[in-house]
């Protein structure tokens, strides 16, 4: 299975890996190392696809309420939307930051908080997508905010809103691991040529 995946992945990945890894790796990756790369990717996607992250990485204009403490998946209540200006900060009269401040509400079911609370751009949607789809997307500068893999790693480690995923306040399951561990996994994945799993 692994050999098959390698055969499938190598031709497509080599140019991407060479292009994206230039800044991050000590030297350009000569080959995609699936044995090291895919476990690292699985650790990464466990974070990206976790409800604490994916609920606000949506393709349409409605953030989701989902995850172990939420019961059935549903759209965020109160008719909350991305915003007519596509900014991700909500609409006039009802901004994300009307309710979400810089800190979590300490009360059960109170609104969580982190600086600059907003939706990720629609092209960075992960909600409901497979591991392979997210993987292809996060390596594509058109769909990752124009970032190199090294920049993505730093973004995950240092961005306060991303970091909220591991400190989500009472009653919410945190994303697995930590910001630092996810940063390290992205570096390992990148050094291994950033392989993607086969599509489901």
């Amino acid at each position: 299975m692994l050999a098959l995946a390698a055969a499938a992945a190598l031709p497509a990945l080599a140019p991407l890996a060479a292009q994206d890894d230039g800044a991050a790796a000590p030297e350009p990756a000569l080959a995609v190392d699936l044995e090291r790369g895919l476990p690292a990717w699985r650790a990464i996607v466990a974070v990206l696809a976790h409800p604490r992250c994916a609920n606000c990485h949506v393709e349409d204009n409605r953030p989701r309420w989902s995850g172990p403490s939420y019961g059935a998946t549903r759209a965020h209540a109160f008719n909350v939307r991305r915003g007519a200006d596509e900014s991700g900060f909500g609409n006039p009269g009802l901004r994300c930051m009307t309710c979400h401040f810089e800190t979590n509400s300490a009360k059960p079911h109170g609104p969580p908080g982190a600086p600059s609370w907003h939706l990720a751009p629609a092209e960075m949607a992960w909600f409901g997508k497979s591991s392979a789809e997210i993987c292809a997307q996060i390596k594509d500068p058109e769909r990752n905010g124009g970032r190199s893999l090294a920049e993505i790693a730093v973004h995950v480690r240092d961005d306060a809103l991303v970091g909220w995923g591991w400190q989500p306040g009472p009653g919410r399951e945190p994303a697995p691991g930590s910001a630092e561990a996810t940063f390290a996994a992205i570096e390992r994945w990148s050094a291994a040529g950033a392989p993607c799993p086969e599509p489901d």
């Binding site: 008719n79 939307r81 006039p92 009269g93 009802l94 009307t98 309710c99």
Partner: peptide
């Protein structure tokens, strides 16, 4: 736009 503002 009214609904988007007043839903909360």
């Amino acid at each position: 736009e009214i609904d988007a503002a007043m839903g909360g």
